[in-house]
Amino acid sequence: MQIRAEPLSEAEGIAIVIECENLDAGNAQRFKEQVQPYLDAQALVIIDMCAVRFVDSSGLGAMLACLRSMNNKQGQLKLVSLASPVRALFELVRMHRIFSIYDTREDALASL
C-alpha cells in the first residue's frame, strides 16, 4: 500500500494520493493505518483517487471509517478523481450521498 501526502498550498489541510490501483480486502486495513495520522492531524483531508481502478466493499469500509473519523472532529474529508467504475460502486451503495466527491482537486478546494 502506497500513499503520498501533499500539503495544500491553497488551504489548511493535506491531500492524500493513493498510488496503487486497487483499494480492496488485500490492503484496506493497511490504508486505514497509514492514513489515520493525517486524519488525526488535519482539519481538511482530500483523498485523491486518480490512480485507483478497483475498490471493493472492504475498500469502501475503509473510506467510510476515514469519513467517520473526520466527522467526529468536525473535520472535512473530500474525495476527488474517482475512476468511473469506482464512482459506479459508490453510487451503487449510495455512498455518493454521504461523501463529498469532486472531479478534481481544484473543484474540491473551490467548494470550501
Binding site: 480486502a25 471493493d56 468511473s84
Partner: peptide, 21 residues
Amino acid sequence: PEDFRQSLALAAFEAATNIVR
C-alpha cells in the same frame, strides 16, 4: 466494456474475499 469487466470482477472479488475470510 470496462464497466462490465469491473462489475464481474467486483462481484467475484467480493465472493472470493468471503471464501478466504
